[in-house]
């Protein structure tokens, strides 16, 4: 994977899928329409501020709740390339990997970033460079199994290639 370069959006613990995509937009059937409402209950106008390459940093249990994959797809549609969290809810973690978004588990993630920090993630070097704070944060190696899915740009691309 190439390096990811962007700005940090910082969130707390237990951000759930109802927070990310509120229920009333679930049957809109249009990705761009749903995406406009991303995280609006807890961070109004979030979707307007995100730029291609940006990264979400959060506390524990990110993405808890429903299996609604819209809650990952809206981030993908907005151009978010990675989510760094102290821990992830299981289904959400799978959905991130399957859609080709980098999920990084990092202890004390919230304490190492501030809202708006400019960061660079390089998997080859296994680190996150926080340019704003001028620190380098080592990250655990992503298992090869998951890396292959990410490098294909998501699991459906991987299947297409093998068919």
């Amino acid at each position: 994977m190439k390096e990811i370069k962007g700005k940090v959006f910082l969130f707390g613990d237990d951000i759930n899928t109802d927070d990310i995509v509120p229920h009333q937009y679930l049957n809109l059937r249009d990705d761009n329409e749903i995406t406009k409402h991303t995280l609006e209950n807890i961070r109004p106008n979030f979707a307007e501020f995100v730029r291609e390459g940006d990264v979400i940093v959060a506390g524990k249990n990110f993405g808890s709740g429903s299996s609604r994959e819209e809650a990952v797809n809206v981030l993908k549609t907005l151009g978010i390339k990675a989510v760094i969290a102290e821990s992830f809810a299981r289904i959400y973690f799978r959905n991130l990997v399957n859609l080709g978004i980098l999920a990084i588990k990092l202890k004390k993630a919230k304490e190492q970033f501030s809202e708006g920090d400019n960061i660079i993630i390089t998997l080859d070097n296994g680190e996150i460079i926080n340019q704003t704070k001028d620190i380098r944060i080592p990250i655990e190696k992503i298992p090869d199994f998951l890396l292959k899915i990410l490098e294909s740009g998501g699991i459906l691309n991987k299947i297409k290639k093998s068919k």
Binding site: S67, R68, E69, I91, N95, N98, F145, I159, K163
Partner: peptide, 19 residues
């Protein structure tokens, strides 16, 4: 038994397998 997202369901529809 466990919950999965839409992409995982598509993988199962296509291959009958899941990671």
């Amino acid at each position: 038994s466990t919950g999965i997202g839409a992409t995982d369901v598509s993988v199962v529809f296509a291959t009958g397998k899941l990671w």
